[in-house]
Amino acid sequence: MAVMSFLTVSLLFALGLFTVLSRRNVFKTVIGLTLMESAVLLLLISWAYIPGGSAPILPLQGKGVDPLPHAFTLTAIVIGACDIALAFAFIMKLNRFERSVNVDDFRRLKG
């Protein structure tokens, strides 16, 4: 099961990376970013799982799963949402300057 999870994580991350590198629409870049973040979240949670474990709410029924990565993942989700919001704000602002959402048109910092 862990192998399956890791396989999915790698594929999801690669999918996100592919999107960022090859899609021209800047919204697709944000999608790629989201996919990469989701891959990492999946990795953290799947790695925290202990077979036969129960949710980390006391009183535990049997062993509990590892709660520390859950805390990290919570933080990561919130921060991911914040950075995606900021990315959207950047897109809106850039759109006013260039009137396009093509990431190849944003070349003002060249040189």
Partner: peptide, 25 residues
């Protein structure tokens, strides 16, 4: 995977809030 907190957060923030922000943008 027995991570109820994380599932709740993911559903609310990533599926809900981010999509609405995208719609605005």
């Amino acid at each position: 995977f027995r991570a109820p907190d994380v599932a709740l957060t993911q559903a609310i923030i990533n599926s809900g809030l981010v999509t609405s922000l995208f719609l605005v943008a």
